[in-house]
Amino acid sequence: MTDRRLLVAVPALNEAGSLAGVLTEIRAAQPDAAVVVVDDGSSDETAEIARQAGVVTLQMPYNVGVGGAMRVAFRYALDNGYRAVVQVDGDGQHDAGDIATLVAALADSSVVVGSRFAGSKDAKWVGTHRRWAMWFLAVVVSRVTSTHLDDVTSGFRAADHKAIALFAEHYPTEYLGDTVESLVLTSRAGLSISQRSVSMRPRRAGRPSQGTLRSALFLGRALMAVSVALMRRPVTVG
């Protein structure tokens, strides 16, 4: 029988190159956890690789973005009675060894964000402008959520059963909604957030977005996401 408590959710868009390795790593680190891959409308063999690996595969008929993919994963978790969900990206950026750290921290908060900046200096691969933008965003979101957060755009995070119920219904699906806006949503729903330091690797495939203009654009859109999240009526979990 699979462990009904922890679900590792892997949103993947065209990650045929790295997915098999990521799944093997997760299995090794968390042999008792169930794994679900959400194939976000990939044009490569992402879904086939997930099925061959024997994990639950949710295949979106078209691309919905990370937020949309994660919302399905949260609904799946809610429908099947999982008590915790950990999001691990399919590109191999996240170290499955850190899943345990995030899950352990769920004991005293509803959402745990894996931070690549907290207390470590091995994040040199993030471009300077981009890093500055992320820092500024972290300051803003930290203020809004009254929680000290260093890495608000991190996709490596854990959610407890209360957050699962909230996210299954309300997870933001717009650009950056899955990272920044979801934290504001969590905080305004009265759920607690904390962070743990994790190590992250550069992506195995694809390259991170960089450049001054793109960073400025990224920051603008992120602040927009925060503003919209703040303007929305707060939702409560029953």
Binding site: V56, L58, Q59, M60, P61, Y62, V64, G68, R75, T173
Partner: peptide, 17 residues
């Protein structure tokens, strides 16, 4: 549409299982 898509994806997985 997104609600329908989610329902569809969850049902498809269930049928497969």
């Amino acid at each position: 549409l997104s609600k329908l898509t989610e329902d569809h994806v969850l049902l498809a997985e269930r049928v497969e299982r």
